[in-house]
Computed example of a mutant assay.
Amino acid sequence: MARTPVPHADRSAPLGNALAPDELMERLARAAAGYYRDLAAAAAEHGLTLSQAKMLILLRQPLPMRALAGLLACDASNITGLVDRLEARGLVSRHLNATDRRIKNVVATEEGREAVRRIRADMRATSAAFARLDEEGRRSLHELLGRLHPEETA
């Protein structure tokens, strides 16, 4: 995936009165770290690793194994093992792509979708953080996060 360069040379310098991009990246990194700590703890309560939980969350729709590797930022060979373990637990299944039989799509089963619901319900720190926002704040956060990487929100 090609990276779009930042239009200014110094990412640590504020843009006028705005926050410097590095400050925003730091804040986003801390928020993401907190989310993933919470996700890992909730997933562990259900006998899943962080990577397995992340994969299940991504499977809102069937996805080719190569696409999963891209979304999880890992080598395609790692996806096979993750899918094998989730399939053995009945949380995902593999299906041949209707238009290209060389491609295997991974699909969350009903049990997999229920596991995601339970994991999210157990993410207490993240739920508490969202509860500190009013409805307008949650809508704004949703909209802003969607703007950060719009190609990944579809």
Score class of each variant (00 low, 15 high):
Q61N: 14
T99E: 10
L58H: 08
T80V: 13
A129D: 11
K54Y: 11
R85H: 13
R94D: 03
R85F: 03
L59A: 01
S77W: 08
N105Y: 08
M65P: 11
G47A: 11
I57V: 13
A125W: 00
L91C: 02
A69P: 07
A69Y: 05
S127Y: 03
R102A: 12
L82S: 06
A125T: 08
T99Y: 07
H95G: 12
I103R: 02
L82A: 04
G70C: 07
P64I: 00
R66V: 13
E114T: 14
I79M: 04
P64K: 02
R66L: 13
D100V: 05
A73W: 04
A98V: 09
V107I: 15
M123L: 04
A88Q: 01
K54M: 15
L82G: 05
T49G: 13
A53P: 11
R117G: 03
N105S: 14
L71R: 15
I119V: 13
A88I: 01
E114I: 12
L48W: 10
N105K: 12
D122L: 14
S77M: 12
G70L: 08
L50H: 08
S77L: 10
R94A: 05
T99A: 11
L56N: 02
I119C: 06
D75E: 12
G90W: 02
R113C: 05
E110F: 11
A98F: 07
L68E: 03
L56S: 01
N105E: 14
T126I: 02
R124W: 00
S127N: 15
L86K: 03
R66G: 15
G70K: 04
L86R: 02
G90I: 02
A76T: 12
R117C: 08
R113H: 10
I57K: 06
A67H: 01
N78I: 05
R66K: 15
G70I: 00
A98H: 12
M123Q: 02
C74P: 09
C74Q: 14
R60D: 07
A121L: 13
M65Q: 15
G70M: 07
A125G: 03
